[in-house]
Design a binder for these strands. Structure first.
Lengths: 133, 133
DNA sequence: TTACTATATAGTAATGATTCTCATTACTGA
DNA sequence: TCAGTAATGAGAATCATTACTATATAGTAA
């Protein structure tokens, strides 16, 4: 693994932001200080950072993957209206999930992909949702 | 909403199988008895069935969406090796999730997308995974 | 039955995210 | 400095999904 100006810039960009950007968002941002980066290079570097456990990849249904420099255990809430992503610190949920999934199945679970969809506080006017159950 | 031979055939196909097929799998299958169906028609009808709560759409990271005729509350385990999908009955997990996500956030959660990735019993030789924690 | 109208379909083009290819560039260790 | 090789840029390719459009057909009313 070699160093390059591009890989440093891309890494600094993702590590320095907390808005859960997509690859395209990182690309736009990096492009401002390095106009010739290619989107492929952004993807390649993000993939590498994910592989090295330096950032997380968040798969959101029907949307581009997002990337997250916060490595500590947490899950995500995605607002269906404004697209914003919030973090939920939740070691407790993980424990419950591991218990429920592993114990009852022969599966060796390596990763749990969990995303909650809904409306964030400011977008939510009609107060619906499963909390009311 | 009108009836057509295609919509009936597509519905019967998904409702009659338990292998969590993708749209392409349904298409291949339906095409055997109706060689001229178009993939677009399959997508349209699956979308309609999802909208009517007759089937579920399962979003799996980096894979095509899968469809599930089992409506009762459950989650999915996807084998990273063979691609198989297993069901996990789990009202208990849902209760824990709702509690953890709703109570601590201003979010109105409409849907929780949860997929556990790992190795199914027959693909799992080296016995790794988070169960060991 | 027939005619009418709106919906569904087939076929295909378009889209969007991501990956791949390959010629070129530029680190890095000798 | 130089060779070897990994990383890059540019753009083509891929894959799932959606959009478009002309045609076919279901439901309905006469």
């Amino acid at each position: 693994m070699r160093n390059s100006k591009q890989s440093e810039t891309i890494k600094a960009n993702v590590m320095g932001r907390y808005d859960h950007p997509t690859a395209a968002m990182v690309y736009e941002s990096v492009r401002r200080e390095m106009p010739n980066v290619s989107l492929g290079t952004v993807y390649r570097n993000l993939d590498r950072l994910v592989a090295n456990d330096e950032i997380l990849r968040i798969s959101v249904p029907n949307q581009a993957d997002r990337f997250d420099a916060t490595i500590s255990e947490h899950y995500h809430l995605v607002c269906e209206k404004c697209g914003g992503v919030s973090d939920v610190e939740s070691a407790r949920v993980t424990r419950a999930l591991k218990r429920a999934f592993c114990e009852s199945s022969g599966f060796a679970i390596s990763e749990i992909q969990l995303v909650a969809m809904g409306r964030c506080e400011s977008c939510n006017s009609n107060k619906g949702g499963i909390c009311q159950n």
